[in-house]
Structure formats: structure tokens, C-alpha cells
Design a protein around this nucleic acid. Structure first.
Lengths: 110, 110
DNA sequence: ACGCGTTATTCCTTTTATGGCATATCGATA
DNA sequence: TATCGATATGCCATAAAAGGAATAACGCGT
């Protein structure tokens, strides 16, 4: 046992680029709760611009839409996470959980 | 089985900061082969400055020296990887190898 | 004391990332 | 058609990272 610790960034990619990581996961969850990118951004204390760019890259990268955006209309519109998006979040959570186990195991041998 | 793939950066830290990652590992190996930071930098096609900063941060971060540098003297000096450095490289390799297994396993379930 | 080749460090330019701000766009509703 | 609130997007200022070039420092051997 030493003071050394394994660290990592972990994310999911497809052939078009990164699909899910810790930042996008949190943002999607905030969107699920608030129903809009704007409110999610406020809740996460990030700029709308940043949040929007994350959602934009999400839909660029995925064949099936991860979020559904409505522009205009009642209340100006809003954003929802699709079933596919929920599935992605769950998959990512699963991987992160397993990775935590892996790190615990490996930290014992270094 | 999908087209999704797990990606990651993996490195080792102690309380002072990052100690070993893919870039530092390659640089240390090049230093082992060449005996100097300068030649290692040339071999890796990176600037001496960049290579030097990496070695500098290595010794800042580690209690036991990872590399030994000699300034001046015959042939101008040189740099060697210590036993501690070799141990670190080996540890990192071990972790990366195990992590590759982990990724293979996880990629089957996503 | 000088030359040599390497490490060590400074300075300044270029590039890239970050972020705010303003504004256009959109579409149901009144 | 005017309003409203959210999405969509461009512009520019600033910050931070990266990089190159030049040069100082070092110490053994001659």
C-alpha cells in the first residue's frame, strides 16, 4: 500500500466522437429535472452557451437522438431526454461503477 | 454489442500531483535508451523544453527521485532513470494492462 | 582558462480555450 | 400579428496553454 492512486477520465465514444462523460451525464440529469437547457445551465451554474454546446455535440454524435429539443411554441419550447438518452446514462453509470471497483482492486497492489 | 467504446485517460497520482501517465512513460523509456533529455526529446520529436518540463514535474512530485540529472562535466552531463523510476514504469504498465482487460470486458456489455 | 555538450531558465510570440453579450429564430397562444 | 420564453448562433474580449528561440549555468578534460 502506497500513497499512489489511480486516476482517470472515463467516457464513451462512437465513431463520430465522445458520447457520454461525467459532464454530459450531469447536464442530462439536470435537463431531466428542469425540462430545459436554460434552467439546467442555471442549476449547474454554467453558461447557457456551454450547456447548449454540450447538447449540440450530443445530437451531432448520435444516430438516435439523445435529447429532443422544441424551439418556440408554448413557453418558448424546452428540451427532454429521450429513452435512448436514459439508456446511455444508465450504461455510463454501470461502467463507472465497475471502474470504481477496478480502481479499488488495483490500488491495493500498487 | 454496439459501436460504443469505452475510452479513457489513465494516470497515477500522489498527493502532490500526477506521477505517471502515457506521455511520461514514453519519455522515461526514451531517456533510458538515450541517456539524455535532449536526445530523448529528439527521438520523440518533441521540444527539449517540453521534455525538460516533464522531467522537472516528475522530480517535483516524487519524494524519491525518479530521474537523476547531471549538469556539466564530461559530455555536458546526462540523465538517468532511477530504480524508483523503473519501478514506477513497471507499475504503470501493469495497471494499463489490467485496464485493457477491464475495457474489453466492459465493451462486451454495452 | 577554454571548449564542449547537456541541463536550466527566461522572454516573447502564437495558438487555443473560455466566456460573456447581443441578437436572431421559432411557434403556440391570445 | 404581437408577445413570450426558450433554443440557436455569431462576435469579440480575455485567459490560458503551447511553443520557439535565445542564453545562462555547469563542470570535466585538455
Amino acid at each position: 500500500m502506497s500513497s499512489l492512486k489511480i486516476k482517470s477520465n472515463l467516457w464513451i465514444e462512437n465513431d463520430k466522437g465522445p458520447v457520454m462523460g461525467p459532464g454530459k451525464k450531469k447536464l442530462l440529469e439536470a435537463i431531466q429535472e428542469t425540462g430545459s437547457i436554460k434552467l439546467a445551465a442555471i442549476a449547474m451554474k454554467m453558461s447557457y452557451r456551454h450547456a447548449w454546446e454540450m447538447t449540440n455535440s450530443l445530437n451531432k454524435v448520435s444516430a438516435k437522438p439523445i435529447i429532443e429539443k422544441v424551439t418556440g411554441g408554448v413557453n418558448g419550447g424546452g428540451t427532454k431526454v429521450t429513452k435512448e438518452g436514459e439508456r446511455l446514462i444508465a450504461t455510463y453509470e454501470k461502467i463507472v461503477k465497475e471502474f470504481e471497483k477496478f480502481k479499488t482492486k488495483m490500488n491495493k497492489i500498487i
